[in-house]
Nucleic acid binder design. Structure first.
Length: 281
DNA sequence: CTCCTGTCCTGCCGGC
DNA sequence: TGCCGGCAGGACAGGA
């Protein structure tokens, strides 16, 4: 599912339901997700109070009062379900990890495709974890601006679309929001990343921030698997300009659809790219 | 280094 | 109705 906005919505749901509660029990319904679940996963967390829930890129980080903690990646199909204390819940297929909190709230990690994973880390050293050590700036922070983007893209021959999916360039973008940001910025996804002009990068930076912020405000995008922690849906998918819109006209377009063919879908690096050939030259 | 491909896994959808 | 191929929001390893 999840790109930065969806992960942020999940983080907020977790914060609301779990912050300052104790983890009474961790149930592992299988020993591996994408990677094996670390040996001390339960031992490091059980009996400890959750003191912070953060997000970095598409990852959620949860720390307990001892300083230990874990990272969670939702992969493509991962979901967090929060079952309030006293609410009846029938366990479902792919409920791989279940946290029972001290007030009997259940936090359930469900992931059919098992591209997601958990790993242990520590509050003092998590930035050195393999998942984060080379990760690019947070796009909604002050660390992200046209200058750092230009430096990261300098000399890159790969298409700008592919480069923006690289978490080392900028954190948290995935296929949907890259397509949307490039459309908003009027940049052709095939353009070599290193050739995008400084003034265009200025615009692109703003578009990335804008689309992510608006998506968070809309509760993320719900396609297929994605739900909030309470089961409700996001609705940013109704605001997509190009993603999954092949053959349609882009918003505000005045071209003749029978001539232009509307929004195109192509494959880049094995992933679908959606764009408007007229407005993204 | 950069870049490209294949791969992990399950579920869903469209076409025949 | 049922089967099969293609595709899916991610990110890694390995090879050119």
């Amino acid at each position: 599912m999840p790109e930065l906005p969806e992960v942020e919505i999940v983080r907020r749901g977790l914060e609301k339901a779990a912050l300052h509660k104790n983890i009474s029990r961790v149930i592992l319904n299988r020993g591996d997700l994408r990677f094996p679940i670390p040996a001390h996963f339960q031992k490091n967390l059980e009996g400890h109070e959750i003191v912070s829930l953060r997000r970095r890129g598409k990852y959620i980080l949860c720390f307990v009062e001892s300083g230990e903690g874990f990272i969670l990646h939702l992969g493509m199909s991962g979901r967090i379900k929060i079952i309030p204390a006293g609410e009846k819940y029938e366990p479902q297929k792919h409920d791989h990890v279940v946290f029972i909190l001290s007030d009997s709230t259940q936090v359930i990690f469900n992931d059919p495709r098992r591209f997601g994973f958990v790993d242990l880390t520590h509050n003092d050293t998590w930035r050195l974890h393999d998942s984060f050590k080379a990760m690019g700036p947070e796009p909604l922070s002050n660390d992200f601006h046209a200058g750092v983007l230009a430096a990261a893209l300098k000399g890159r021959k790969s298409p700008i679309k592919t480069a923006l999916l690289d978490q080392k360039i900028v954190a948290g973008l995935g296929n949907i929001y890259v397509c949307e940001a490039l459309f908003m910025a009027g940049i052709n996804p095939h353009k070599a990343a290193g050739d995008v002009k400084a003034e265009k990068l200025e615009i692109l930076t703003r578009c990335i921030r804008d689309v992510l912020s608006r998506a968070i405000d809309a509760g993320g995008s719900s396609l297929r698997d994605y739900h909030h922690t309470d089961g409700s849906l996001g609705y940013f998918q109704h605001q997509f300009c190009v993603y999954d819109q092949a053959g349609n006209m882009c918003p505000g377009c005045d071209c003749d659809l029978s001539v232009s063919g509307g929004i195109k879908r192509v494959a880049q690096a094995g992933r679908s790219t959606f764009y408007c050939p007229v407005r993204q030259e």
